[in-house]
Nucleic acid binder design. Sequence first.
DNA 1: CTAATTCCTCTAGCGACTAGAGGATCAAGA
DNA 2: TCTTGATCCTCTAGTCGCTAGAGGAATTAG
Lengths: 140, 140
Amino acid sequence: MVFSIGELSRRTAVKVPTIRYYEQIGLLPAAPRTDSNRRFYGQAGVDRLNFIRHSRELGFEIDDIRELLAMSEQPQSSCHKVDSIANSHLVEIDRRIASLTTLKAELARMISECGRGRVCDCRIIEVLADHGQCRSEHRL
Amino acid sequence: MVFSIGELSRRTAVKVPTIRYYEQIGLLPAAPRTDSNRRFYGQAGVDRLNFIRHSRELGFEIDDIRELLAMSEQPQSSCHKVDSIANSHLVEIDRRIASLTTLKAELARMISECGRGRVCDCRIIEVLADHGQCRSEHRL
DNA sequence: CTAATTCCTCTAGCGACTAGAGGATCAAGA
DNA sequence: TCTTGATCCTCTAGTCGCTAGAGGAATTAG
C-alpha cells in the first residue's frame, strides 16, 4: 500500500510543504520517487510522521525529535536519554508556565485599574511607561 | 543632556543592535546624528525605549506596541483601544497557559510511566508513536 | 601615539515553517 | 480524446524579533 504526499498529509494532518521541509532538513528520509518524480510513502512514513507531529505538539524541538527518533530505532539501548530529554523539556515548560502566570497577573491588574477614560488617565499606558505621571505633552 | 546609543543601551537594558533594529523598522524614530554620523538620544529616547522594553517583557508584539505608542501620544483620546489590545493579549496568554498545562500533564504522565529500562519498553517513545489521532494544537 | 572601545553600514543567520511563482503530470468527466 | 482542475515538482523568498559577524571609521583612555 503506497500513497502520495497529499495522502500522507491527510493521514497525518501535517501539511504537504511541511513534509517536504522535514525531508529537506533530514528529519524524514528522502522518499522514493515514481517514474514521474513524485514522492511515495508507505505505513512506515505515516508512523514516523505521526511520531514527529505528536512530538511537535508536545513542544519538542526538531533537534530533540531527531534524537528521540534515533533512539526509537535502537530498541535495545537504554532509554535513559529519552527520559532526560523529556524531563528537561518538562522543566522548560514549567518555567514557561510560571513566567506566563506572573505576566498574566501583571496584565490583569493593569487592565482592572484602567478607568476606561482618556489615555492620559490610563493605568495600562502608565504601567508600560514605567513613569507614574502622564502629561498632555507627549513624552515618549 | 544627550548620550550615545551605547549609553542608551545601558540605561534601558536594550542591546545596541536591537535599538538600531527598532529604528530600522520604524518603532523608534530615526535618531539625530552627530557630525561624525553617530546617533544621539535624550530623555525622550529613554522613555520611549523603556516603554517598548516593558511592553515586550509583557509579551506584546511589535505591532501592538506600535499602536500603544501611537495612543500614548494622544493623551486626550479614549483609552478604549488600549484596553482592547491589553485584553486580547490577556486572552491569548490564558490560552497559552491552558495549553502548556495540558501538555505538562501529558508529559509528566509519560515520564512517570517510563520504567528507565530499554527503549523498547519505554512509555515515552510509545506515547509519542501511538498518538495518531490526537489533534490538539499547541502553539507556544 | 597607540590601543582599546565604540560606533557605523551591510549582509546573513536563527527556528519552523509558509507562501508563491512557474511548470509538469495525473484523474475524471464530456 | 480532450479538457479541466487537482495535485505534484523545484526554487526562492518571506515570516518574527532579533543576533552575529565583516569591514571600516571615529572616539577615548592611558
